[in-house]
Simulated scan of single mutants.
Amino acid sequence: MRTREWHPRVPEQRPGPPGHCRWHLRLKSATIAFQQCTGLTADGIIGPNTWSELDYWRWNDIDCHK
């Protein structure tokens, strides 16, 4: 399982309320859309199951829009 390292440019790790910038909102929206497409719980959190699906879809060239 991968662990997320702290990075100062990741908005959710900066002080402030969740969703305080457009980048964060777009990432969360895209994450939820991907999770819905794959049948995962659509919570917008990129946890171990979402990472696993992302890897699987990437290496198998799968696209929700096909």
Rank of each mutant, 00 (worst) to 15 (best):
G39F: 02
T31Y: 01
I32L: 00
E12P: 03
W6E: 14
R9F: 11
C64F: 05
C21Q: 07
C21Y: 12
L54M: 06
P15A: 12
D63R: 09
P15C: 09
I62L: 11
Q13V: 12
R58N: 14
E12V: 07
S52F: 10
A33G: 07
G16K: 06
V10R: 14
R22I: 09
T41D: 10
P8F: 07
I45N: 02
T41Y: 08
A42C: 07
D55Q: 09
I45V: 15
L25A: 08
W57T: 02
G47L: 00
E5I: 13
T31R: 04
P15L: 03
I62N: 06
L25D: 05
Q13L: 09
D61Q: 15
P11L: 02
W51F: 11
I62F: 01
N60S: 14
L40E: 00
W6R: 12
G19H: 04
R14N: 05
C37P: 06
T3E: 14
H24F: 13
Q36Y: 04
H24E: 13
R4Y: 11
F34K: 01
M1N: 15
P48Y: 03
E5A: 14
T41R: 07
W57C: 01
V10G: 10
P17N: 09
A42N: 09
C37R: 02
K28Y: 08
T50M: 05
P48S: 15
P8I: 13
I45R: 05
M1Q: 14
I46S: 04
P11Y: 05
R9L: 15
G16P: 00
H24K: 06
C37W: 01
T41L: 10
C37M: 05
S52N: 07
R14W: 08
K28Q: 09
A42M: 06
H20G: 08
H24D: 13
L25K: 10
N60T: 08
R58G: 09
H65N: 15
Q13C: 02
R14K: 11
H65P: 06
Q13D: 13
E53P: 00
K28S: 00
G47E: 03
V10S: 08
D55M: 10
P18Y: 05
R2P: 15
C21F: 07
G39Q: 01
C64A: 08
D63V: 05
W57V: 01
G47A: 02
G39M: 01
T50H: 04
E5C: 10
T3K: 10
R22Y: 12
E53M: 00
L54F: 00
H7T: 12
R26N: 04
I62G: 04
E5N: 14
M1H: 14
T31M: 07
Y56V: 01
Q35Y: 06
L27W: 06
W51A: 02
L25F: 03
P17T: 10
K28L: 06
G39N: 03
I45L: 10
W59T: 04
M1F: 14
N60I: 03
G19C: 07
L27K: 12
C64N: 05
L27R: 13
T31I: 02
W51K: 07
L54R: 01
K28N: 08
C21R: 06
R4P: 03
L25T: 13
S52C: 11
W57Q: 03
N60P: 11
T50Y: 03
I62S: 01
L40H: 01
F34L: 04
P15Y: 08
P48G: 13
D63I: 07
Y56W: 15
D55A: 11
F34S: 00
E12G: 02
